[in-house]
């Protein structure tokens, strides 16, 4: 296991923010820590990236202890924090070159690596512009590029897409996806199930400093029952006609029914045919995929 944490605890005063976290990442895997604000995601990342010490428990990265061998750990990891750590008044190129020099790549080595990363993250055209003129998405990409200068073995990404518009988010996902394909071990935190689903092999669900679920995205979704179709009817008699033919359904509002579905068009077609044959047609139809809220309600209730 390249990342291994055992019974991590962290308190600030009387408030316990982590109440015993165990994690294990095999090399080349991608783990998402999923949870709402205050769940302990950032605290976990800060402990693993040597910024804070745990009150109890231990963790190793590539065999190095995060407390006793912090310097060695820093040599193999990189951290991309929640707020883009870039200098507004330096250009994209200067920001990258600065990290290259700090990592002692030598002038030529730093230049070469800077060029590669600018290219990889689509920032070559903007490399001579000061970062303050960059969009939110460009800033995040530069931030990520800066954490890759020394080719770290383990990358921590703390909410890499929070606050980004959908287009920038998907560009960021592509960039992260590329790292995944290169075999980098990644631990990311997110509030979005969709993001965890798309990027991670395994999801650990955190709530109030505890792990409440751990598994693949599919396994978690299965626990909350997958997708549902909601049907809105015009009147009570129509609802009765529908329940007669559909059998077990959930009533989710006045004149609103919710039916389990596999999300395919074939199933929706079948559903509507069934209703029409029984003499009713819903006024509105909407499909619902399980959201983080659903997963949470199901697993923390």
């Amino acid at each position: 296991m390249i990342v291994e944490a055992t019974a991590l605890r962290k308190s600030y005063g009387a408030t316990e923010v982590l109440s015993g976290i165990d994690l294990a990442l095999p090399e080349g895997s991608v783990l998402a820590l999923l949870g709402p604000n205050g769940a302990g995601k950032t605290t976990t990342v800060r402990i693993l990236s040597t910024l804070i010490r745990p009150n109890a428990g231990s963790a190793t990265i590539a065999g190095y202890d995060v407390v006793r061998q912090a310097a060695q750990v820093r040599g193999v990891i990189s951290l991309t924090g929640q707020y883009a750590a870039v200098d507004e008044n330096q250009t994209g190129r200067e920001n990258l070159a600065m990290v290259g020099r700090l990592m002692h790549l030598g002038r030529r080595g730093a230049d070469r690596r800077t060029g590669e990363l600018l290219e990889q993250f689509g920032l070559t055209d903007a490399m001579h512009r000061r970062v303050k003129t960059y969009s939110g998405g460009m800033r995040r990409r530069l931030d990520l590029a800066m954490s890759l200068v020394a080719r770290p073995q383990v990358i921590f990404l703390d909410e890499p897409t929070t606050g980004l518009d959908p287009a920038s988010r998907s560009t960021m996902w592509e960039a992260i996806g590329e790292l995944v394909r290169d075999g980098t071990t990644i631990l990311l935190t997110t509030q979005y199930l969709e993001e965890a689903d798309r990027l991670a092999d395994r999801i650990v669900l955190l709530d109030h400093g505890r792990i409440v679920a751990d598994g693949t995205a599919d396994a978690l979704k299965a626990q909350v029952g997958g997708e549902r179709v909601e049907l809105q009817f015009a009147s009570e008699p129509e609802v009765r006609k529908a329940t007669d033919v559909l059998g077990a359904v959930a009533v989710v509002g006045p004149l609103r029914l919710s039916v389990p579905s596999d999300g395919t068009a074939v199933h929706l077609h079948h559903l509507l045919d069934l209703l029409r044959d029984n003499g009713t047609v819903p006024e509105r139809v909407s499909a619902h995929r399980p959201t983080l809220d659903d997963v949470f309600l199901a697993l923390t209730a």
């Binding site: 990189s78 951290l79 990290v99 700090l102 931030d143």
Partner: peptide, 13 residues
């Protein structure tokens, strides 16, 4: 107070 200090502290410098 920005992310910069975290970035620098997580580097081996």
């Amino acid at each position: 107070n920005s992310g910069m200090i975290d970035r620098l502290r997580s580097l081996p410098i």
